[in-house]
Design a protein around this nucleic acid. Structure first.
Length: 1034
RNA sequence: GCCGAGGUGGCGGAAUGGCAGACGCGGCGGUCUCAAAAACCGCUGCCCUCACGGGCGUGAGGGUUCAACUCCCUCCCUCGGCACCA
């Protein structure tokens, strides 16, 4: 079930997502290829272990290695019995011997896979004489079996790697396993199977499944993140980051299940209501000491994508994720609460610093809001407010993230009794706390400018806090509402006379005032307003019009004066706590009361009149000059929380000494290995924490007893550098062999799912840049080119899932059609970056195609149609198609356009059938057949290898050079051009390709269709598009 | 709500601003066969027409252009990401 959840979460690991987790016992897939145990050191997994040494502590790396070796060597216990029975139709028909041999992938595919492996055909070694190409595709999590999605990601990537290899590049295309992680551990809690045992059994099985794909993986470069020889260096990297100040420990809120009494990883928090995976209890936040990596230090650089070819989509997602905001920090002094009940303000030493992207709205601040967790809250809260404030904080902390972050939610908050002073105008601002202000962004405190911030507006309206517009509306919309009975007779006539438009409904006037007539309107309104009432203008200007004067609504003082007079005049508005609340009651006004656009500053003291274009920068400059604030940049990106209270991960290599504090494990003592003898109890506690002795160690510094960190690292840490471990998976002098690094890095082409855009793909860039700054790696980016595949859906167009019963099992498809057909279908059936539903019907097209390829080549070998009586024109035509196909396939493979690669190959195949009776046996035929196989080799490596051999060509087709098209042969001799009259096709003309433009135009004008539709008129213009058409404009 | 991608035959999908629908599935017809399947060959956007031919067509509406699936504006819908980020 964890897997189901993870499937929907969908962005947890840089792995190609498995469709569903397989437990160690469920393994229905029967496969034609026996999962051959590669090694013969068949020591059975050590089950009954000798008692641990009295000193206990961590097992040595050697101990763990032994177990792993045993597990790797042991036959996979849950592997299915090998199904040898070939499908009935594959049995060679004894009768009708004259029939050509049928295409039988079940025989040829395993045969060639064994041969390639035996010959180390895909072994990649440093070769300075050839250009290198590091092709990388995201590694799988060893869930237990391969999903069709893995094939969709990997098979086209393999085809492209093969293509690059045939073009002369020294290609490295490695594969490994992102082997640490939660599913194996959760499964262990259910059935007691040790995560290590399960994981390595799954890897052994999936490795064989991957082999059935016929990919050019170099298995000697395989890296498994849970091997001690791997995570030794994961830990080493942690220590390097720590030593360079990029890893730090701090108190941070984590999800906590109050029933299980433990923290939960994000993966364990389920559903919209964010409940605990095991007990269903909604999680709460709890503060714990956690390790973080300082990703924010690289926020600015991560926004730059110089020199790398990554999809815009990923770049944009990363840019949004990092979320750069320019603004200012402004400091608001706090008024002592001792005197808050008096009119005498008393300054204190305290101050609140806020971040704002709109310093141009500073004069409109009417209150302050702190996050409930803000450190100043306890200090500033007045005694009489304390009970209410503490109650609010308690419930806010209990809030789930979903509740708290929901934009639908009613605003809540409480006044803490204290006040701050607006440094720009001295206004006294009440300080509130509210959960819509997040401690984790900016400074955890805001100045509220309700007139120009939607959230502040809603909050102020709800709690009766004043709202004061300070930015002019860019649309210059002004309105006035004259309630029936508030104006003397003749008001409407006066407006009409002035040309001011209004609507009259039930005795009231709804007036929209043209900006240039604002002053005139105010004069007229003042003349007509009754002494016991008032009129007002809202929008472009904000004035209250009384019979004895026009009051500008331009400050908090004015707010108070206006409100008092209105209350005195009209009992109906006495329940309105602010001017804006009064205005909001008028439906007609609502669309002009709030806006968040930039515009000319108003009601802003000396800055009034500053145009919107420069307002922000002008104010920042002034803040800095006067010391009231400074321009700053804030990012949405948070530091990366590394700690996981989990067993199946790389232990954090840190020791806590009562005397020396936090001490890293000395590098020569790495790896800190996981203990094996742990119990799988549903306590929610990490087995590392519960283990009686594992955490006990001595301080590397002073030698006194000390404790290990019992947390492990986020598995994204492991996958942030796996591309480096592939370089030299068994190297023990460092994380990678520098010789290998210098030759192979950076990764030239990286393929995988776009769902990793904001997690893995940011982490790995951060990791590389941090290592660069430590002098460990070179260059600014780890992966030069990134391409994302889409997702294969179920045949019903829905996401594949066991519960829907729409899962396509690649093993079964391979059994039905062969790996080459599955590969070719995955490339042909979809725009690769889009994906789409699996179709059992459409795959038939590819089934037929490969059978046609098989048949035509076998016929060629048999020579049964050797006629060769085709005309020279036919030969030229076939050669032209052959060379055009070379051009198209080359270009489209380069561009990852796999679907049109296959369609071009189909067209060449169709051409061969067209000419099979006339040209078979000719040189043109030989050329076409040879190139068809070479061009198809990356797509369907087995069938092409088989047919290549049967043609008597030298092994291996995959070591041949990629064909090069001859443009002269590819060029058309005659071209057919459309003849358009006024853009509509009316005729076609066929001319030699080298016909001059003038002659073509003349021919077009003379064509029957053109003459008919020109209707005797003379052409105004004749447009010739080379090789395409002639458009006659009349 | 914000950001991004995308809407093309019955279906999957092709189309440097230049003949929309390549290639394939499905469908129809033919060859082969006692028959069926397979295989091979042909046709297949919609509408009118016996036909020749014509009209209409790339989510909707406008615009730019000799020419728009493609570029611009407005709107509708689908998918992905983010979401009280001050």
């Amino acid at each position: 079930m964890a897997a189901t959840k993870k499937q929907t979460a969908g962005k947890k690991k840089p792995t190609v997502r498995p469709q569903a987790k397989k437990t160690a016992t469920a393994k229905p897939a029967a496969r034609p290829v026996k999962a051959a145990a590669p090694q013969k050191k068949a020591a059975a997994p050590k089950k009954a272990r000798s008692p641990k040494p009295a000193s206990a502590g961590a097992p040595t790396a050697e101990q763990v290695r032994k177990v792993i070796t045993a597990l790797k060597a042991a036959p996979v216990e849950q592997a299915a019995p090998v199904e040898q029975a070939a499908p009935a139709e594959q049995a060679a028909p004894p009768e009708r011997a004259a029939q050509p041999e049928r295409y039988n992938p079940a025989v040829i595919e395993p045969k060639w896979q064994k041969r390639w492996e035996h010959d180390k055909l895909y072994r990649s070694v440093i070769d300075p004489s050839r250009p290198k190409h590091y092709a990388l595709t995201m590694l799988p999590y060893p869930s237990g079996n391969l999903h069709i999605g893995h094939w969709y990601a990997m098979a086209p990537s393999d085809a492209r790697a093969r293509f690059m290899r045939m073009r002369g590049y020294n290609v490295m295309f490695p594969m490994g396993f992102d082997a640490f992680g939660l599913p194996a551990e959760n499964a262990a809690i259910k059935d007691g199977v040790h995560p290590m045992k399960r994981t390595y059994a799954n890897i052994a099985y999936m490795r064989e499944q991957l082999r059935s794909m016929g990919a050019m993986f170099d298995w000697e470069r395989e890296a498994i993140s849970s091997d001690p020889e791997y995570y030794r260096w994961t830990q080493w990297f942690f220590i390097q980051l720590f030593k360079h100040g990029l890893a730090y420990k701090k108190l941070a809120p984590v999800d906590w299940c109050p029933t299980c009494n433990t923290t939960l990883a994000r993966e364990q928090v389920w559903g919209e209501d964010r409940h605990c995976e095991r007990c269903g209890t909604p999680v709460i936040k709890k503060n714990l000491e956690q390790w973080f990596f300082r990703t924010t230090k690289y926020a600015e650089e991560l926004l730059r994508f110089d020199g790398i070819d990554w999809p815009d989509k990923v770049r944009e997602m990363q840019t949004n994720w990092i979320g750069r905001s320019e603004g200012a920090e402004v400091t608001f002094p706090v008024i002592g609460h001792q005197s808050s009940s008096t009119t005498e303000a008393q300054m204190t030493d305290d101050s609140i610093t806020v971040f704002t992207t709109r310093p141009d709205t500073l004069w409109g601040a009417t209150f302050m809001v702190l996050a409930p967790e803000h450190p100043l809250v306890a200090k500033l809260t007045t005694p009489e407010r304390r009970a209410e404030v503490e109650a609010y904080i308690a419930q806010a902390i209990r809030q789930t993230d979903i509740d708290r972050e929901s934009t639908e939610k009613e605003k809540t908050g409480v006044f803490i009794g204290a006040y701050a002073v607006n440094p720009v105008n001295g206004a006294r601002l009440p300080i509130w706390i509210a959960d819509y202000v997040l401690m984790t962004y900016g400074t955890g405190a805001i100045m509220a400018v309700p007139a120009h911030d939607e959230r502040d507006f809603a909050f102020a309206l709800k709690f009766g806090l004043p709202i004061l517009p300070v930015i002019e509306r860019p649309d210059r919309l002004a309105k006035s509402f004259a309630l029936g009975g508030t104006m003397h007779d003749g008001f409407a006539d006066a407006l009409r006379a002035e040309g001011i438009p209004f609507e009259e409904r039930q005795g009231s006037l709804y007036i929209t005032i043209p900006p240039e007539k604002l002053d005139r309107y105010i004069e007229i309104a003042r003349r007509f307003v009754r002494p016991d009432s008032w009129n007002e203008v809202v929008g472009l200007r904000w004035v209250f019009i009384f019979h004895d004067g026009v009051w500008e609504w331009d400050s908090l003082e004015a707010e108070a004066r206006i409100l008092a007079r209105c209350h005195a005049l009209e009992p109906d508005v006495r329940d309105k706590r602010t001017v804006m609340e009064m205005l909001w009651a008028v439906e007609f006004y609502r669309d002009v009361l709030y806006h968040d656009a930039y515009g000319t500053m108003i009601h802003s003291g000396p800055f009034s009149g500053t145009p919107g274009a420069t307002a922000k920068t002008d104010v920042i400059r002034w803040l800095e000059a006067t010391g009231k604030g400074r321009g700053t940049v804030t990012y949405r990106l948070r530091d990366w929380l590394i700690s996981r209270q989990r067993y199946w991960g790389a232990p954090i290599p840190m020791v806590y000494c009562p005397d020396c504090g936090i001490v890293p494990v000395p590098e020569d003592q790495l790896p800190v290995t996981l203990p094996e003898d742990v119990e799988w109890l549903p306590t929610g506690q990490s087995p590392l924490k519960l283990h009686p002795t594992w955490k006990q160690t001595t301080c590397p510094n002073c030698g006194k007893p000390a404790e290990r960190d019992t947390d492990t690292m986020d598995t994204f840490m492991c996958s942030s550098w796996y591309h480096l471990r592939y370089l030299s998976p068994h190297y023990d002098q460092g994380p990678f062999d520098p010789k290998e690094y210098d030759y192979w890095m950076p990764v030239d082409t990286y393929t995988g799912g776009a769902e990793h855009a904001t997690m893995h793909l940011i982490y790995t860039r951060f990791f590389h840049k941090a290592l660069r700054d430590m002098g460990i790696v070179k260059g600014d980016e780890p992966m030069l080119q990134l391409r994302n595949q889409g997702q294969i859906l179920g045949p019903d167009g829905q996401r594949m899932s066991k519960s829907r019963g729409n899962v396509i099992d690649p093993d079964e498809q391979v059994r039905l059609y062969g790996a080459d057909t599955v590969r070719a279908y995955l490339m042909f059936g979809y725009e690769w970056s889009e994906g789409g539903p699996w179709s059992t019907e459409n795959i038939q097209g590819v089934v037929r195609w490969l059978n046609r390829v098989w048949t035509i080549v076998i016929e060629t070998v048999d020579g049964r149609r050797r006629s060769g009586d085709g005309s020279p024109a036919d030969e030229r035509a076939l050669r032209r198609i052959t060379h055009q196909t070379i051009q198209k396939v080359t270009r489209d493979l380069e561009e990852f356009q796999f679907n049109t690669v296959v369609s071009a190959l189909m067209e060449l195949t169709n051409a061969l059938y067209k000419y099979r009776d006339s040209l078979m046996g000719t040189a043109a035929w030989e050329e076409a057949i040879t190139n068809l196989l070479l061009l198809t080799a990356p797509v369907a490596p087995h069938i092409t290898e088989e047919l290549w051999q049967r043609l008597g060509k030298p092994y291996s087709i995959h070591q041949q050079r990629w064909p090069v098209a001859d443009p002269a042969i590819a060029a058309e001799e005659v071209i057919t051009l459309a003849v358009q009259v006024n853009g509509k096709v009316r005729d076609h003309i066929t001319v030699p390709a080298d016909t001059s433009e003038d002659a073509i135009k003349a021919a077009a004008l003379a064509s029957e269709g053109a003459r008919k539709y020109m209707d005797g008129k003379s052409p105004k213009n004749v447009v010739y598009v080379k090789g395409r058409l002639v458009n006659i404009v009349v």
